[in-house]
Design a protein around this nucleic acid. Structure first.
Lengths: 204, 204
DNA sequence: GTAATAAACGGAGGCACCTCCGCTTTAGTG
DNA sequence: CACTAAAGCGGAGGTGCCTCCGTTTATTAC
């Protein structure tokens, strides 16, 4: 009955993990990568044996690294959130700040779209492992803040909003029912939001 | 995509079900009975094949009657709640009304005790299937009302309480953590409650 | 280089899930 | 009764989960 720090410490928070042997590191990374694509393709209930097979490792290796399905899902999920957040910096460097913001929100919609199918399992995971929720939502809002503040600073969007306003506006994306039109509706929401943000830019 | 009335209509709400063939009825009843004892013995994750085996039917028969584990669990659960509620009438007929009430509450504690291990699965079931929750809690409070009202009527417990007060007082049984002392603590709660109820009986 | 050892690998094997469909039994009908 | 259609049965078989442990490999020490 050891006290679990929080399910799976993990994540690359510095080199706080004891270094894995080179082959182990390789296999582990491979598994996460393959799992991401298999989950995307077949849903969260995809066969773990298929993941191991496609990754070219034995099923035993998969289980050694990820003792339960949830461990694997969590790592994949964190990795994807991380990538989404990292994209904020890259977009900011490559585009005018308002365009960067818009493009990021578009990716956000796509990201949520892929996660919809996984909704029930993710919900279990999120209620089970509360740090997962706070960690990821923290990272996401931080990424968004960076983009919004930059755009406000150079006057491409209005100055009387902040990241939490935008996040709030985006919440419709989460709460809307999972209909066929959902994606289009969400994209329109982003457009609408951007129009509103650009309106009166440079005057606030 | 048919509209499901509510997961599994079931229950013997009159003869609204098309009559099963005699052998089918027999197998079905047998399965429910065996399932109840296997679930009690091994927990909610007990092997369905074991249930079928012990019931002396093929696994195919189990699945025909109960397409998912949840279907089976729900039917077992409803049956048990039903039995608990039916006991109210029997106890009322056999004992002085205050004794009947006390005994019923004691059984209630025992019942909850057996359900504790099944808590997580039951929680899923209860959130998934909302009628299950309202149906059963309705039945339980109805049974309790019968007992409380009888005891108030013939003056064996005080008159200034009703069934919902008692149910409220019993809620500690649900919310208390699942420690080893839980059962004793709950029995003391029942005793305490009965003392309070008997105090000043016949004066309200 | 080589040896020693701890770490990691992989897949066979045991168990459970669930589907599918050929066989059996029941409940009607004459 | 005998016959038949419909209902029900059951278990083989294909798949997935997860554990266990003999074998392989990376690393460290010399």
């Amino acid at each position: 009955m050891a006290v679990e720090p929080s399910a799976i410490a993990e994540t690359k928070t510095a080199a706080e993990e004891k270094p894995l042997r080179a082959d182990a590191r390789r296999n582990r990374d491979r598994l996460v990568e393959v799992a991401a694509s298999v989950f995307a393709e077949r849903g969260i209930d995809a066969s773990l044996e298929e993941i191991a097979r496609r990754a070219g490792v034995g099923i035993g290796t998969l289980y050694r690294h990820f003792p339960t399905r949830e461990h694997l899902v969590e790592v994949v999920y964190r990795r994807e959130v991380e990538a989404l957040c990292a994209a904020a910096g890259e977009l900011a460097a490559k585009h005018p700040s308002d365009v960067a913001l818009e493009e990021w929100m578009r990716r956000f919609v796509d990201y949520i779209a892929t996660k919809r199918g996984l909704a029930t399992s993710l919900r279990i995971l999120l209620t089970t492992n509360s740090t997962l929720f706070s960690d990821t939502s923290g990272r996401v809002s931080q990424a968004l803040r960076q983009l919004v503040e930059a755009a406000v600073a150079d006057g491409t969007i209005r100055g009387d909003v902040d990241a939490s306003d935008v996040l709030h506006a985006l919440s419709g994306i989460y709460s809307a029912p999972d209909t066929p039109e959902w994606r289009d509706r969400s994209r329109r929401l982003v457009k609408l939001l951007m129009d509103g943000l650009r309106f009166g830019a440079g005057k606030g």
